[in-house]
């Protein structure tokens, strides 16, 4: 332990402003980065889910017309079943 008391630790031998500013900004930035990444992931998952739900609903409404081109027919039927 390089410090004999907690006060001394926070004072950093008179360099408190500099040490804590550098560490604080670094920590804050890293936390913001992680928070942003989580937010991004949650949002994208929501978008994908909403799109899946919407397309399933469309398929339920008009099963023969509303299929996207790349979807084979049988898989669309599986989806209908899955949703119900």
């Amino acid at each position: 332990m390089a410090f004999s008391s907690l006060n001394e630790f926070f004072a950093m031998g008179g360099h408190a402003v500099y040490v804590w500013a550098a560490w604080g900004v670094t920590a804050l930035l890293m936390l913001v980065i992680v928070w942003h990444a989580r937010q991004e992931r949650r949002q994208l998952l929501n978008v994908v889910k909403r799109r899946a739900r919407r397309e399933n609903a469309q398929r339920n409404a008009q099963p023969s017309h509303a299929q996207p081109l790349q979807e084979p027919v049988n898989s669309a039927q599986k989806d209908v079943h899955h949703d119900a």
Partner: peptide, 25 residues
């Protein structure tokens, strides 16, 4: 972080793919 954000990027770019939708469900 790169792994995590690459996964998000995959969701963003491959949102039309079948496996992504199944995964979301």
């Amino acid at each position: 972080l790169t792994l995590m954000r690459t996964r998000s990027e995959i969701l963003r770019r491959e949102a039309n793919k079948r496996w992504v939708r199944e995964l979301a469900e």
